[in-house]
Design a binder for these strands. Structure first.
Lengths: 251, 251
DNA sequence: AATTGAATTCCATAATATGGAACAGTTGGA
DNA sequence: TCCAACTGTTCCATATTATGGAATTCAATT
């Protein structure tokens, strides 16, 4: 049994609002996105507007995220600390590799991009920049995060995400779990060119850290730049920069 | 009847987590703060952790805000835009008055501080800096926001907040509604020295703007600096800077 | 004025949340 | 090492809340 279902529904609505950004979304769009009947979503939105978690446009026909989310985030010191902690590493990675560097962190069943630093080249990625998200299971950062989890946990997540992943990538390989296992052994993940053919990237998981959410540092660049030799180079750089940050923190 | 009650409960829990910041809060503390039995809160927290809205410490005995909140906030373009829009005005107000300047915005039944710019003096305020909040009904910024609302709406809010306000200020005057009405006429609010005797401030409401949440610009300084003449000066500066921003936007 | 599509309200029903009580796990003191 | 006190966790019969199909209202478009 899934607990707190109505809570989950509100959270889904929030994510839908976030996905629609500045343009906002209509009641019908939101209801469609979260697969719930309109009256139900209407009720949830009413409560969310009242609480400041959602805003309605003057016409009343579009909803977007309300100020409460932002206000709470300002108090989210652990996450802001994480971003702060990795900013320098991202800058150095971008500098040294010339590619874009990302801080990816697990949030529920997704990986989200908390920070990004462009290098010389900037490519359109799966995740789509700061605040972007992708189900755990596809993309190098996302796979690297799975590799930081126990086998049990990552398998559970992959099962849970199966439907969503297949929506994004129809010909998803069956062997994702063993792929993740491979990453645990190798210590890095590499994009399989499954989704965007021209774009490639690598990621290195950040060693689990007391209480902090699971995260990874990843890069994205043109696939053509990423031959075997270069992958090894970039991975080495990532490992170096991660070690520097972890060492500094652990003291 | 209040709709979506369980949703509201999760939101209350989120706010409690935010209030406890980096130190986090225990299950018992949270349950106490939201006035719900432990099993109920436990269930909500479990769901929130799973979804990334909350984090548990390694020991499992402390909860804090999860990365999801931050990730959503990164997509909260309307609010980030608001902060962006007013940053310059805050800087000029702080510069010209020497006091601290605040962007306060309505979020549900509270006023929250989205941005702050210190002047020469920095005083401890009711709200407590960026991300801080206070129930609508006390403090100049908060009162100014009420004045942007219809009389009906502000009265409803005052009734709703009555208990919370009396907790903060035992000798709350009965005449708050007429006080708000006064602010509507005068075009500014002034701290009544109700709460922190040594601290004073003024606020000017921002004219209602299509779809944007209700907000106000306020200042805080030592009460001793705030005689009648000075209040008029500061109010004039606030009105000027607000007009400049509104003109630029509407223009 | 008529038509379409969206938003909103209603309310009997179904499903979920509730929370007291019992249990388990942890901490700190003797 | 054991015990006491406290915090967190699980259980489950009950009560409360959410649900969503259908009907209605509202707004925009032709």
């Amino acid at each position: 049994m899934v607990p707190a279902q109505s809570t989950q529904k509100s959270f889904d609505v929030l994510r839908t609002l976030a996905a629609h950004g500045a343009a906002g979304a209509s009641l019908a769009q939101i209801a469609g996105a979260v697969a719930l009947p309109k009256p139900t979503v209407h009720r949830l939105l009413a409560a969310m507007v009242q609480q400041g978690f959602a805003l309605r446009s003057a016409t009343g026909r579009r909803y977007q995220l309300g100020p409460e989310i932002y206000a709470l985030a300002l108090k989210s010191q652990s996450t802001m600390g994480l971003v702060e902690m990795w900013r320098g590493a991202l800058m150095r990675v971008a500098e040294r590799t010339g590619d874009s560097a990302f801080l990816m962190v697990r949030s529920g069943y997704d990986a989200v991009c908390l920070a990004k630093q462009d290098g010389i080249v900037s490519v359109r990625t799966l995740t789509g920049g700061i605040g972007g998200r992708i189900p755990l299971g596809i993309g190098p950062g996302s796979l690297a995060i799975l590799a930081t989890l126990s086998e049990d946990e990552s398998d559970t997540i992959l099962v849970h995400n199966d439907r969503r992943l297949r929506m994004l990538v129809p010909d998803l390989p069956e062997s994702l779990p063993s792929w993740v296992e491979r990453i645990r052994i190798d210590g890095f993940a590499q994009s399989g060119g499954l989704f965007l053919a021209e774009v490639g990237g690598v990621a290195v998981p950040v060693p689990r850290h007391l209480g902090a959410p699971e995260c990874a540092i990843s890069t994205a660049t043109l696939a053509s730049r990423l031959d075997e030799v270069r992958v090894a180079e970039v991975v080495a750089i990532l490992k170096e920069e991660i070690a520097a940050v972890v060492g500094k923190t652990a003291g």
